[in-house]
């Protein structure tokens, strides 16, 4: 391990791949980014992600390592992408599900329990809808399409060569960073898909300033406001490898929760409904698997945007100095 520039091929143009390419190129390596599709992002599950940078809320069901990676990724996002919106996250529940709010509060930290007055102040459109909530002020969100495009562009500016529509395994690299998500499944037998479905709506009748998480004992969902009056509602979490279109049941759940957040969404346009698979390992924690001269960065589950920047730096540190983060590295022999 040394500081010599390496010839590195990054495979896969989802959020993991573009971040790896950017960070490795910025550290002075010769990087080629390859993708089997001629259009980048087209098949990436990150294209339909919620893209919330919510290290505290995710602690409700994720291991502490996710929070750690998320917290170190947040400033990296802010440095690399000018449109990170750090307005926090608001967690609400209907009056009959208040016990869910209490449970969520017990399992997370860094929030403020807010009443109707404060709710009116920060999210006026929801003031009539909810009487209380949990506010996580340090959390952020972004528009995933803009972010992916921007990070790819920055990577290219940093010298990354791209070969899109290039299905072959590249030859002659010192290292291959494999970020292909589910496409790497043949080589990573532990990887499974966890299906997620989402809806994009558009309306100018509701204004939200931050992601809203609506707790429910069976269908906890969230809504993220995007620029230009778009709203993304996600996401189902189904233990299934089925990549087919959104089911009616899931569509009802997603649209029902939009309506529950605000009835004006009843008049919104349905812009798109999409489904894809989250690549996941059995513990739902991302892994960097070192196998000969290939490093697989995979299994980001529902934490792709949250943890990709930190994972890119962990890979770069490994290539440079051999450092290993015990919680995410698996070095095979």
């Amino acid at each position: 391990m040394n500081d010599k520039p390496l010839n590195i091929t990054v495979r896969g143009t989802g959020i993991v791949g573009v971040w790896q390419a950017l960070v490795l190129a910025t550290r002075g390596h010769q990087v080629t980014l390859v993708s089997k599709t001629s259009e980048p992002f087209k098949e990436a599950s990150s294209w339909i992600a919620g893209a919330m940078l919510a290290p505290f809320c995710e602690t409700e069901s994720a291991e502490p390592v996710i929070r750690r990676l998320g917290l170190s990724s947040l400033p990296l996002w802010q440095q690399a992408f000018p449109h990170v919106v750090q307005n926090g996250t608001l967690v609400v529940a209907s009056s009959r599900d208040q016990s869910e709010l209490q449970r969520f509060g017990r399992q997370t930290e860094e929030y403020e329990a807010i009443d109707a007055v404060k709710l009116q102040e920060i999210e006026p459109d929801l003031a009539d809808r909810f009487r209380s909530g949990l506010f996580f002020p340090r959390e952020a969100h972004l528009q995933p399409h803009w972010a992916l495009t921007h990070i790819l562009q920055k990577a290219m500016e940093a010298g990354v060569q791209t070969q899109f529509g290039h299905p072959e395994r590249p030859e002659g690299s010192d290292y291959i960073i494999d970020c292909r998500g589910m496409a790497a499944r043949d080589e990573l037998p532990d990887l499974r898909g966890v299906r997620g479905e989402m809806v994009i709506l558009r309306t100018n009748e509701v204004t939200l300033s931050r992601p809203i998480r609506l707790l429910h004992p069976r269908f906890p969902l969230y809504m993220v406001p995007w620029p230009e009056n778009y709203f993304m509602i996600g996401a189902t979490v189904i233990e299934s490898d089925d990549q087919g279109p959104v089911s009616v049941r899931s569509g009802l759940e997603l649209l029902g929760s939009a309506y529950a957040i605000h009835p004006a969404f009843g008049e919104a346009e349905i812009v798109r409904m999409s489904a894809n698979l989250r690549p996941s390992f059995p513990d739902n924690i991302p892994k960097i698997i070192v196998r000969n001269n290939t490093l697989y960065v995979n299994g980001l589950y529902r934490h792709g945007f949250l943890t990709s920047p930190a994972l890119a730096h962990l890979v770069a540190d490994y290539l440079q100095a051999g450092t290993i983060d015990e919680e995410v590295f698996v070095v095979e022999h």
């Binding site: 990887l191 499974r192 233990e239 299934s240 490898d241 089925d242 087919g244 089911s247």
Partner: peptide
């Protein structure tokens, strides 16, 4: 019901 058996699609989870 949810893990759509018809398409044999929950295999990763069922294996576990």
């Amino acid at each position: 019901r949810r893990e759509s058996a018809s398409r044999q699609s929950g295999q990763g989870f069922w294996k576990l």
